[in-house]
Protein backbone atom coordinates (compact mmCIF):
# COMPACT_ATOMS: atom_id res chain seq x y z
CA UNK A 1 0.00 0.00 0.00
CA UNK A 2 1.54 3.32 -1.09
CA UNK A 3 0.80 6.14 1.35
CA UNK A 4 -0.83 9.28 -0.01
CA UNK A 5 1.05 12.40 0.97
CA UNK A 6 0.64 16.08 0.62
CA UNK A 7 3.57 17.36 -1.47
CA UNK A 8 3.82 13.77 -2.75
CA UNK A 9 5.85 14.68 -5.84
CA UNK A 10 8.55 16.32 -3.67
CA UNK A 11 8.66 13.48 -1.14
CA UNK A 12 8.80 10.67 -3.70
CA UNK A 13 11.31 12.39 -5.96
CA UNK A 14 13.63 12.88 -2.95
CA UNK A 15 13.38 9.23 -1.96
CA UNK A 16 13.84 8.30 -5.64
CA UNK A 17 17.07 10.29 -5.90
CA UNK A 18 18.32 8.71 -2.68
CA UNK A 19 17.52 5.21 -4.04
CA UNK A 20 19.16 5.83 -7.43
CA UNK A 21 22.38 7.31 -6.02
CA UNK A 22 22.72 4.59 -3.39
CA UNK A 23 21.98 1.88 -5.97
CA UNK A 24 24.78 3.30 -8.15
CA UNK A 25 27.13 3.15 -5.17
CA UNK A 26 26.31 -0.55 -4.87
CA UNK A 27 26.39 -1.41 -8.57
CA UNK A 28 29.42 0.60 -9.71
CA UNK A 29 32.05 -1.32 -7.66
CA UNK A 30 30.47 -4.64 -8.73
CA UNK A 31 30.66 -3.70 -12.43
CA UNK A 32 34.22 -2.43 -12.02
CA UNK A 33 35.25 -5.61 -10.26
CA UNK A 34 33.73 -7.77 -12.98
CA UNK A 35 35.61 -5.87 -15.68
CA UNK A 36 38.84 -6.04 -13.70
CA UNK A 37 38.47 -9.77 -13.10
CA UNK A 38 37.89 -10.37 -16.81
CA UNK A 39 41.11 -8.48 -17.57
CA UNK A 40 43.05 -10.40 -14.94
CA UNK A 41 41.64 -13.69 -16.24
CA UNK A 42 42.86 -12.80 -19.70
CA UNK A 43 46.31 -11.83 -18.43
CA UNK A 44 46.59 -15.05 -16.47
CA UNK A 45 45.57 -17.06 -19.54
CA UNK A 46 48.18 -15.21 -21.62
CA UNK A 47 50.88 -15.98 -19.08
CA UNK A 48 50.01 -19.66 -18.91
CA UNK A 49 49.62 -19.98 -22.70
CA UNK A 50 45.89 -20.89 -22.53
CA UNK A 51 44.70 -17.71 -24.18
CA UNK A 52 42.22 -18.15 -27.03
CA UNK A 53 42.40 -15.07 -29.23
CA UNK A 54 38.84 -14.27 -30.40
CA UNK A 55 40.27 -12.49 -33.48
CA UNK A 56 42.35 -15.43 -34.68
Amino acid sequence: MIPEFEYAIYVWSSYGIFAVVIAWQIVQPVLYRRRLMAELREELALQSGDYNDPNS
Binding site: Y7, V11, I17
Partner: peptide
Protein backbone atom coordinates in the same frame (compact mmCIF):
# COMPACT_ATOMS: atom_id res chain seq x y z
CA UNK B 1 2.88 18.46 6.61
CA UNK B 2 4.31 15.44 4.73
CA UNK B 3 7.10 17.39 3.04
CA UNK B 4 9.11 17.09 6.27
CA UNK B 5 9.57 13.36 5.48
CA UNK B 6 12.32 14.43 3.06
CA UNK B 7 14.34 15.06 6.23
CA UNK B 8 14.90 11.30 6.63
CA UNK B 9 17.01 11.10 3.49
CA UNK B 10 18.30 14.68 3.49
Amino acid sequence: SDSFRILYVH
